[in-house]
């Protein structure tokens, strides 16, 4: 049994496997399938200051080895989260992390401030990379200035572990990561979805209601591994890797590329118990390779 514990800033994870925001609800949706407390963390659905209905249907289309979505941050707002959802999930004995999104810097700050008051939420994942909302979201994550501005403002009010989720829809993700690090982030997670499009050629219209959507699933994994590798070399803060992980082999690629922890996203839709299988598989691989601790393989990649 290898030591799977890792730290993300001051956040202690019993193992490096978390579930990605928007793919795991608030955790409870999956409690029939796994023991939620066996996870290193659960990152709950993107939460905004005010209620959002999200985008119109259709919001999803299947693609080769993945899917495109344009849900658009449907959620009932931070007050509803604090009053109705938090009481229900606060006693799950793992790291319950809230993904925070917004349209303006003020929105992000106000939402983070509210979450900061919740004892059992040890961290937030600041989403500056949602491609499916008109204002804010990814707009902050595609420039160093925008990313810095929102991270600095949130850092002032948010006292616990601050993870910033980066967009892959940029020219140079390492420079954004550095800007985020310099602005006070404790960690970066990457990648969010890649912007994509699918067309119904008979109707000559896009398959999604806002024309484009975010691509996820194994289709994006090599892009994610490459970006984690670039970012891990560029920053000193811990990197959380995600993008198309479906098994332990995939996860180990991310660790070797420099990720200290990983998130499982779209794979939860195909196998709701996959996260625990990945966790167990990581342990088995480490045991089989004589590694006493996960830390032995983080960033262990030798360039070709």
């Amino acid at each position: 049994m290898a030591d799977l514990r890792v730290k993300i800033g001051s956040l202690e994870l019993k193992n490096p496997v978390m579930t990605a925001s928007g793919t795991f609800g608030y955790g409870k949706e999956f409690e029939d399938f796994i023991n939620l407390e066996d996870l290193g963390g659960i990152i709950v659905k993107g939460t905004t200051l005010n209620h959002r209905e999200g985008n119109a249907y259709p919001r999803m289309v299947e693609t080769p080895s993945g899917m495109l979505n344009c849900v658009g941050l449907q959620n009932k707002g931070v007050d509803y989260f604090c009053n109705h959802i938090y009481p229900d999930i606060k006693d799950i004995n793992t790291n319950m992390i809230v993904n925070v999104s917004g349209s303006t810097v003020e929105d992000y700050v106000a939402t983070a401030e509210r979450i900061n008051e919740l004892d059992k939420i040890p961290a937030i994942e600041l989403n500056i990379s949602c491609p499916n909302v008109k204002s804010g979201g990814m707009a902050f994550g595609v420039t160093c200035e925008g990313a810095s501005e929102v991270v600095k403002a949130v850092r002032k009010v948010y006292k616990k572990t601050l993870i910033v989720k980066l967009s892959p829809n940029v020219t140079d993700i390492a420079s954004i990561a550095k800007a985020v690090e310099a602005s006070g982030a404790d960690s970066v997670s990457l990648i969010n979805t890649l912007m994509g499009m699918v067309i119904d050629i008979e109707k000559r219209i896009p398959m999604l209601s806002i024309n484009t959507g975010g691509l996820s699933g194994p289709a994006i994994r090599p892009v994610a591994v490459r970006m984690v590798w670039q970012v891990a070399k560029a920053v000193k803060i811990p990197v959380v890797g995600l993008g198309g992980i479906v098994n332990a082999h995939d996860a180990i690629e991310f660790f070797m590329a420099g990720a200290s922890a990983i998130e499982i996203g779209t794979a939860n839709f195909i196998d709701p118990a996959v996260s625990i299988k990945v966790k167990n598989g990581i342990n088995d691989w480490l045991d089989a390779h004589g590694c006493k601790s996960l830390l032995e393989i983080v960033g262990s990649l030798k360039d070709y």
Binding site: T23, K45, Q74, N268, F269
Partner: peptide, 13 residues
């Protein structure tokens, strides 16, 4: 059109 089937992804609204 549906992805997760358990109310997590909010695609089939």
């Amino acid at each position: 059109k549906m992805a997760c089937g358990v109310g997590a992804c909010l695609c089939c609204v």
